[in-house]
Simulated assay, not measured.
Amino acid sequence: MSHTHKGKKQLLTRIRRIKGQAAALEAALEQETECLAILQQIAAIRGAVNGLMSEVMEGHIREHLGAEDMSAEQRAEEVEQIATLLRSYLK
């Protein structure tokens, strides 16, 4: 079972909040809201996405890299995959 199944309800709550924030941003842009309010909304969305990424990443690292039955080769491959993902995410 994937680690995301364990916290599925909490993750879905976060995603729904992000969807709501994105909808509010869209509405603000359509209504030509002031730039500062739009920037604040973008910052809030970015923070929410970063929090989601952090939570899922932590679960992944604990579940997969923390597995005791993993060979050194499997662990090295997993580390490389996570490093690649982080490089992509942090661009």
Rank of each mutant, 00 (worst) to 15 (best):
R75K: 12
G59I: 06
G51E: 14
Q81N: 14
I82K: 00
A76W: 04
M53A: 13
G20L: 07
I42V: 12
L12R: 04
A83K: 09
I61S: 00
E63I: 03
G66K: 10
R75D: 07
L85S: 11
A37R: 04
A72F: 13
Q10M: 12
V79N: 00
L29Q: 03
A27W: 01
K19A: 13
L11M: 06
L25G: 05
M70N: 07
V56S: 08
H64W: 11
T13E: 15
L65W: 05
S54Y: 04
A48G: 00
A24I: 05
L12V: 13
Q10V: 13
A48N: 00
Q31N: 13
I82S: 00
G47V: 00
I82D: 04
K6A: 08
S88M: 06
E58S: 09
A67E: 14
A67F: 08
E55C: 03
S2L: 13
H5R: 14
L90I: 10
Q74K: 07
R62L: 06
Q21S: 03
A23G: 04
I18S: 11
Q40S: 09
R75H: 06
S2W: 14
V49D: 01
E78N: 12
E73G: 11
T33G: 01
E63N: 12
M1P: 00
L11N: 09
R17L: 14
E58K: 09
C35Q: 05
Q10R: 08
C35F: 04
M1G: 02
H60F: 10
E77M: 11
L52N: 03
K8Y: 15
A83N: 08
M57T: 10
R16S: 12
L36K: 07
D69L: 01
A24H: 06
L36T: 04
M53V: 15
I15Y: 04
Q21P: 06
Y89P: 08
E73S: 06
Q10C: 05
E55M: 12
C35D: 02
L65H: 02
A28M: 15
I18V: 15
A28T: 12
A24T: 11
L85V: 07
Q31F: 03
L36G: 00
L29I: 10
S71T: 15
N50I: 01
R75A: 11
G51Y: 07
L52Q: 05
H60S: 02
S88I: 05
A43G: 11
H64I: 15
E34I: 06
R46D: 05
L52M: 10
K6H: 08
A72D: 15
R62F: 01
E55T: 13
M53I: 14
A37W: 03
A27L: 11
S88G: 07
L11Y: 13
A48I: 02
E80I: 05
H64C: 15
H64P: 03
L12F: 05
E58Q: 07
V49L: 12
H5F: 13
A43Y: 05
H3N: 11
E73V: 09
Q21L: 11
A72Q: 15
A67S: 14
L86D: 00
S71E: 10
Q40Y: 09
E58W: 01
G7V: 04
